[in-house]
Each structure stands twice: as structure tokens, then as C-alpha cells.
């Protein structure tokens, strides 16, 4: 069955705050799609609209061909939704939670084993533990399991890996990959830029707008400039010095180094190094690197702000 999502001019405001500003987006059947953006970008609002929990101010969207507003009932049957906050019953055990959601969707755990086996095998040892006593990663796996119990065609995951340790995060993404192989259309929201590379296509969102929509590789190749990582002894002073450099285009701290782009097309690193040494910096290392999604996001959001 065709489980496309198409969103047209979707807008939503809460009082004076415009959470979504005319979003247009088409997501293909069976795609693993990422919504990347910081808190407040509008990801959760978009999810709640698609999950038929909110009504749009204007615009429309269809899921599997059903209209989000008028045909919300059939949508609720084919949709798996995992809210950003852990929303299962903490005073019920793993098994009780799963059984409850199975009954709600008129199904049984056994009938859906094929769908949830990979995840179930990981949480089964804790099946009699109360959900509230699980670790963060386990909670998210259980929530995913509950969202999958009725074999949804479309899966909406709002920041499923926030607050989850690195190992569990990569396990979680493995699960999404295998779900995608089963033909489920998946939209994942995440504030982690590194997770973008795991999606087929991503939309970079900020302030209720989509800044860029492409494959992760496409977004990176759109990054037009040469990117340099600069390291030094005093990162903070280095940052200030770089920002006062007349040719500087963008300067962002990035872990233990600073990512730098220049306004000129061709630059000589030695010239930059000389400038920094004249500013009193020492032990300077400058190396050319390929941009990551986060660099693209920073560049795009800066452009966006300049335009606005």
C-alpha cells in the first residue's frame, strides 16, 4: 500500500508565536526521513499536526491519502506515534504496557512478533519490570515497541534518542533501519546532527521553516565553501581573534576546535596563521576538512537570519 505523506503550506501558531510557517514536504512511501533542528524549530508541532492531535491554521496534509483533518479516524489506525516525552504507564510493567496497547488496537503481541521481534528480544529480559524503573534506552525501546504493536504504515518518532546513551542510540537506529526494510514510512525528529547521516533524506528546520531538504550527502555537497578546522591553546581567545579577522565568513566553536570559512574563494592557511600569531596565539594548527551536517545547518541558519 502507498504510505506517502504530503504536506502543503502547513501553518500553525500558538497566540503570537508562529510555530510552523507554510511547510511544504513530500515524504515517499517507505522512506526513512529525518527532521533535524534545534529545540523550538517546530518539529513537535509538525508531528502533532500529522498525528491529528492539532488542527492547522492553514494548509493541509495527507497521510496514505487520508486528509489529516477530515479523515483523522482512519489515520489513527495506521499511525504509530512516539511523543518526545516518555508517554507510557510508568506503574505498569513492560508486558502490561505492551498488552494494553495491543488490546487498544485489537491485536495481540504474538500476532505482531515479526514486526517487533528485534526490539522485543532486547526488552524481554525485563518484561516484568515496571516501565518507570527502566533505563532511558530501554524506555525508548519499549515505547517504540508499543508504537509498532499494530503494524503501522507510518511511524512518527519525536526525538526518540534524546537523553539516551550512545550505545542505545546506535541500537535504536539499527532497529529503524530494519523497520524501513519492512516498508514502514518513518519520520524521525532529532536535535543530533550526527543522526542525520543515518536518514535517507533530511529536512533542516529552524523557526518553523525548512531551511534545506536533501539527502545528507546532497546537503553536504551544497556547502559551497572550504572549511577549516583550527586548533590552538586558548580556544576562547582564538574564537574572538578569528571573528575580528576581516576576511572571516563564519566562525563557530566545534568541540576542541573552531570551524572557519573565509569570504574569499581561495585562501592561504599560512596567511591566516600569521595573522593569528600576530595576535599572540601559538601552537596553531589549521587543517582543511569536509563539512558535516552541523556545519551546513549553522551556515544555513546564519543565511536565514541575514535574510530575515
Amino acid at each position: 500500500m502507498d504510505s506517502k505523506i504530503s504536506i502543503k503550506d502547513l501553518s500553525k501558531s500558538y497566540g503570537d508565536v508562529q510555530a510552523l510557517k507554510g511547510i511544504n514536504l513530500d515524504i515517499e512511501s517507505g522512506e526513512l526521513f529525518g527532521l533535524i533542528g534545534p529545540d523550538g524549530a517546530g518539529k513537535t508541532s509538525l508531528f502533532r499536526l500529522l498525528a491529528t492531535l492539532l488542527l492547522p491554521d492553514s494548509g493541509s496534509a495527507t497521510l496514505c491519502g487520508f486528509d489529516m483533518v477530515k479523515e483523522y479516524k482512519p489515520i489513527r489506525n495506521i499511525l504509530g506515534y512516539m511523543p518526545g516525552r516518555f508517554s507510557l504507564y510508568q506503574d505498569l510493567s513492560v508486558l502490561e504496557n505492551l498488552n494494553f496497547f495491543a488490546t487498544v488496537f485489537d491485536t495481540r503481541i504474538e500476532d505482531n512478533m515479526e514486526m517487533i521481534r528485534d526490539i522485543w528480544l532486547q526488552i524481554e529480559p525485563f518484561k516484568h519490570r515496571l516501565a518507570g524503573k527502566l533505563s532511558g534506552g530501554m524506555k525508548q525501546k519499549l515505547a517504540l515497541c508499543c508504537a509498532l504493536i499494530h503494524q503501522p504504515k507510518i511511524l512518527l518518532l519525536d526525538e526518540p534518542t534524546t537523553g539516551v546513551d550512545v550505545v542505545s542510540r546506535s541500537e535504536f537506529w539499527q532497529m529503524l533501519k530494519s523497520l524501513k526494510a519492512k516498508g514502514v514510512t518513518i519520520i524521525v525528529a532529532t536535535p543530533y546532527m550526527d543522526e542525520a547521516n543515518l536518514c535517507e533524506r533530511v529536512a533542516l528546520m529552524q523557526d518553523g521553516e525548512i531551511l534545506s531538504l536533501n539527502t545528507p550527502a546532497g546537503i553536504i555537497s551544497d556547502f559551497g565553501r572550504d572549511l577549516y578546522a583550527i586548533q590552538g591553546k586558548d580556544i576562547y581567545q582564538l574564537l574572538l581573534d578569528l571573528r575580528t579577522y576581516p576576511h572571516a565568513n563564519s566562525v563557530f566553536p566545534f568541540g576542541q576546535s573552531i570551524h572557519y570559512t573565509d569570504k574569499r574563494d581561495a585562501i592561504s592557511p599560512s596567511e591566516l596563521k600569521d595573522y593569528l600569531i600576530s595576535k599572540g596565539q601559538y601552537d596553531i594548527e589549521i587543517s582543511k576538512i569536509t563539512a558535516g551536517i552541523e556545519d551546513c545547518f549553522m551556515a544555513l541558519s546564519q543565511q536565514n537570519k541575514v535574510q530575515a
Binding site: L53, L79, Y81, P83, S87, L88, F101, V104, C146
Partner: peptide, 13 residues
């Protein structure tokens, strides 16, 4: 308050 209502609403109940 705990957000479970969100899930119940999204279900066919």
C-alpha cells in the same frame, strides 16, 4: 499530565 492521553487520542479509541 503524563502525556499518555496523547497516545490514547492517537489510537482508534
Amino acid at each position: 499530565e503524563l502525556g499518555t492521553m496523547e497516545i490514547l487520542l492517537v489510537s482508534p479509541l
